[in-house]
Write a protein that binds this DNA or RNA. Structure first.
Lengths: 235, 235
DNA sequence: CGCGCGATTGATTCGGCTCAATAACTGTGG
DNA sequence: CCACAGTTATTGAGCCGAATCAATCGCGCG
């Protein structure tokens, strides 16, 4: 297994979060601690790449990971952003297909690695885990399908507003309502599914309307009500 | 349970297909036959609607079903087309959320209904089924994510070409290469994620290029090679 | 035979992409 | 600590794909 830094053992780590591993028994968690490996990824490093074969799943201890797909013209689309306590790469591992996407650290991150064998065995032994995983994936499907409809029916402006609300909800803000996640304009455009220039224009527009405060990659949300109006999130 | 027409029992029905239920034991299949209900849906009738609560899953004996989401402006987006032997509505049933989409017969269809309780019990009793379901939903999520990237990175023309290839692959053609599925222009537009007028123009364009033959809702594929070129499906 | 929905075509508009030029920022090494 | 190189961000101009609107046509059906 890989280098162990001073990561807490699984029985102390994941349980605090509402992670799917909360259904593991104490013994199973300790077993995970023994079997798992840990790694440090510098911002920009990839956990895995499209096409390679999954050999286990990644569990984020700290930092943030983006999961993205690269189109043939080289444009990336970010499918998922994951933070502490979240899992990455389980779908491909379960279906035993090569990764259909890549994963990269967008901050320096500490990530645990649970070997496929270990995970599969615990799935077999623990029906509750199996059900949790099923539910998790089904939620992902809903999410993906919702995005699909959004991208085909909403304007860039609406999608950007929605993305900002999502980032706020998922990663939170400082006391002054500044998003805790720092993305490049290009990464934002890869979430929204548009060109970086469009993102820049829309952000400026939101700033001029008094909805946002912008300082480099810090985005402060001044008027969340207006932002919600822009997003037209009724569903 | 609902009216039983002359549907074959599950042990004679689904097994022929490569359905996930092929892993059920003979006894379990017979049990399904006892528990399941069957219904006839006329073209245009809905199996379920967004917002209602799943109480089981649908298994198509004959006919074709579209699964779609309705945007706030009333525009529909078709997420999935299902034919004989396929299952509808399992994701929402598994995650125990209200349906996030609606399902409607696009042909007169015969559809079996397996109560949630029955399905859940068989999941518990049959690990192989559980794994099959896992893999199935993982494929779905890949599919959804692929569509997401496609819709944000490909042109309408490419997406239409791809959709036609998909329809051909999934539902087949007559001897003369005419698609066996008959969709309105609007339904096609709801698959591709565009306006009906755009679909009409693109179809005419394909016809003029000698790629398609059009006769009402019959679409004949004359030059599949060119169609593949238009679709730019390299992945 | 006439009604009505679906299909078709044309004209026009517009959101958002592309290309290009410049500015600001990051971090890297001297 | 500063200069340089390479990103990343910003702004403007022009273009284009595709949506919208409007009018007509043609089936399919009662």
């Amino acid at each position: 297994m890989k280098t162990n830094y001073d990561f807490p053992a699984c029985e102390h780590c994941n349980t605090r979060h509402g992670s799917i591993f909360s259904v593991l028994s104490r013994e199973q968690q300790e077993w995970y601690s023994d079997e798992k490996g840990c790694n440090y990824y510098k911002k920009g490093q990839n956990l895995f790449n499209t096409g390679s074969k999954p050999s286990g799943l990644y569990c984020i201890f700290s930092g943030k990971i983006k999961v993205y797909k690269t189109g043939k013209a080289g444009q990336n689309h970010i499918l998922r952003l994951c933070g502490e306590g979240e899992m990455v790469g389980y779908a491909s591992m379960i279906s035993e297909d090569p990764y259909s996407c890549s994963a990269q650290a967008i901050e320096d991150s500490m990530v645990c690695f649970i070997p496929a064998r270990t995970f599969r065995e615990s799935l077999t032994m623990n029906e509750a885990l199996s059900i949790s995983v099923n539910k998790l994936i089904c939620k992902d499907i809903r999410e993906a399908e919702k995005k699909l409809v959004n991208i085909s029916q909403k304007t860039v402006k609406e999608r950007l507003a929605e993305a900002l609300l999502f980032l706020r909800h998922k990663f939170g803000t400082d006391e002054d309502e500044t998003l805790k996640i720092h993305l490049t304009r290009e990464e934002l455009s890869n979430i929204v599914g548009t060109a970086p220039e469009s993102i820049i224009r829309m952000l400026s527009d939101f700033r001029e309307r008094g909805i946002l405060r912008l300082d480099r990659r810090n985005i402060g949300i001044i008027d969340i009500k207006k932002l919600r109006d822009m997003a037209r999130v009724y569903d």
